[in-house]
Write a protein that binds this DNA or RNA. Structure first.
Length: 336
DNA sequence: TCTCTCCTAAACAAGG
DNA sequence: TCCTTGTTTAGGAGAG
């Protein structure tokens, strides 16, 4: 299942003149920020862009609303939860409606969520890790899965049996007896067995990367290594996730990063070439990722968008995008 | 082919 | 009684 890893670039992509010229061609007036996500990609099928004025779209990755939760199969939210470092948005199985994308993404694309690529162990792991107390009752695990993976809303209920089966059978999960005095409802709480936590994280990472292997960007040893340590190695770029996936102490860390900035991921030439092979790449959108108001958000802009002040002004026309545009301006060295 | 992992289904018991 | 939870067994699919 592991993919061959491309040769490690001699220099980091962000420092490569060639790559930089490609990546920055979309934003000639934007000075290289210390941290800016700027990658060109076809919009993920799970995007539910909120239409902005000027044909721009913004999108919130926070699963705080049901509509947002639909997007969780896009897996980008894993970054928000710090279960995976923010990197290239994964390309999920192609949906026909995206094959024929018009120049602008259709707002509120109809979603037909497929089965998540994650094993039940991973789903349970994510559910538990996402809980404030790192422990959940079975019902809570059900709810988390349903809330985050729309597939299971309509799936036959047998998957619940599989969840329970996994909980019982897997050594990775421990049952905790509820405090009888405070117990409301039956059943126990389940938590992740600490010694199996790194294993679960590894499985989760592998699953994630296997399903985004269309992007050679993520196959860069640099980025993979960065993913392992929660830091990118691209110059002074700051990765948006500062957690250490292999650090058991992460369980006590906030799942939401406390810094607010854009994260830059630029396409390597290989990534660009591969992207060109992707039929969706013709739609050529750029996603601008940023972290704001304790949420990951991103703008989806047409690929030929020049992120200059004019573009930002357009962004500013929309109240919802105003703050985002401000962030871009800040990073561009301007003020608004 | 074998092994392993994972998924699914089913049966059963216990408890609310 | 019904439903949920937890356990166990069995079989199949897919990958290495």
């Amino acid at each position: 299942m592991e993919k061959d890893v491309p040769t490690l670039p001699s220099i980091s992509p962000i420092q490569s003149p060639t790559n930089a010229s490609k990546a920055l061609s979309h934003s000639p007036s934007l000075p290289q920020p210390s941290a800016t996500v700027l990658h060109q990609t076809a919009p993920s099928y799970s995007l539910c862009p909120v239409p902005l004025s000027g044909g721009l779209n913004t999108h919130c990755l926070s699963p705080s609303t049901p509509s947002d939760q639909d997007d969780l199969t896009c897996l980008s939210w894993l970054h928000q939860r710090n279960l995976l470092p923010l990197q290239h948005l994964p390309k999920m199985p192609t949906l026909p409606q995206l094959e024929s994308l018009e120049p602008l993404p259709t707002p509120n694309l109809p979603l037909s969520p497929g089965k998540p690529p994650y094993s039940f162990s991973s789903l349970i792991f994510m559910a538990i890790e996402d809980s404030p107390d790192k422990r959940l009752p079975v019902k809570g695990i059900y709810e988390w899965i349903v809330n985050n993976f729309p597939y299971y809303r309509t799936a036959p209920s047998g998957w619940r049996n599989s969840v329970r089966h996994n909980l019982s059978l897997s050594k990775s999960f421990q049952r905790i007896q509820r405090d009888k005095s405070q117990s409301v409802g039956k059943g126990s709480l389940w938590c992740v067995c600490p010694e199996y936590r790194p294993t679960l994280q590894e499985v989760l990472k592998k699953t994630h990367y296997c399903h985004i292997n269309n992007s050679s960007l993520l196959n860069s040893p640099v980025l993979l290594e960065a993913a392992d340590y929660g830091q990118t190695l691209m110059g002074d770029t700051t990765v948006i996730s500062d957690m250490d996936l292999n650090n058991p102490s992460m369980s006590s860390c906030s799942l939401i990063p406390d810094h607010e900035e854009l994260v830059a991921i630029e396409l390597t030439e290989e990534a660009c070439e591969e992207s060109e092979k992707d039929p969706l790449a013709d739609s050529g959108y750029i996603e601008f990722h940023y972290y704001q108001d304790q949420q990951y958000q991103y703008l989806v802009l047409p690929g030929d968008t020049e992120l200059d002040l004019e573009t930002v002004e357009i962004l500013q026309l929309d109240a919802e995008a105003q703050e985002a545009a401000g962030s871009l301006l800040d990073l561009a060295g301007g003020s608004h």
